[in-house]
């Protein structure tokens, strides 16, 4: 019985955690007119692409541990943390590139996008303001 209750509690806790976890949105400066696919965004954040439809875009990452980060890489880029680490080790030490710059939180991301229309980033869907345009939504 105890085990059963513990299981129920765990499941409920997991469920609530899922519920409270908001979606992740891919955003740019509100003035940018652009359509992107998941594959475009993944390629931009992995440094395999520097532009989409002729528009140069610099990806802005969030620091490890930032709330939307894991979901973004899991759902949009389709890479586990282990894959991502091995990928960047290969890219960095062959001099092919550097991982994107990381911002501290959603607020800083928005602040950066407001000032620079050549950037693309991801934030929690709850943090969206009028300063940014949502290109993709992932739940």
């Amino acid at each position: 019985m105890k085990k059963f209750v513990a299981t129920i509690v765990t499941v409920l806790a997991a469920f609530t955690a899922l519920q409270s976890q908001a979606g992740v949105v891919v955003v740019v400066n509100s003035s940018v007119e652009l359509n992107v696919s998941k594959a475009d965004v993944a390629a931009l954040f992995l440094g395999k692409k520097k532009s989409v439809a002729g528009i140069s875009l610099v990806p802005i990452d969030q620091e490890e541990g930032a709330a939307p980060r894991d979901k973004f890489y899991q759902k949009v880029v389709n890479k586990t943390p282990a894959q991502l680490n091995a990928y960047w080790a290969r890219i960095i030490f062959t001099g092919k590139g550097q991982p994107p710059k990381a911002a501290f939180d959603d607020a800083e991301v928005i602040e950066m996008l407001e000032k620079d229309s050549g950037m693309i980033a991801y934030i929690d869907s709850a943090s969206v303001t009028g300063a940014v345009k949502v290109l993709l939504t992932v739940d």
């Binding site: 680490n85 091995a86 990928y87 080790a89 290969r90 030490f93 062959t94």
Partner: peptide, 12 residues
């Protein structure tokens, strides 16, 4: 495939 990063064991 791994020649350029042959010394970076973490990558493979």
């Amino acid at each position: 495939m791994y020649s350029e990063s042959i010394e970076v064991g973490y990558a493979y």
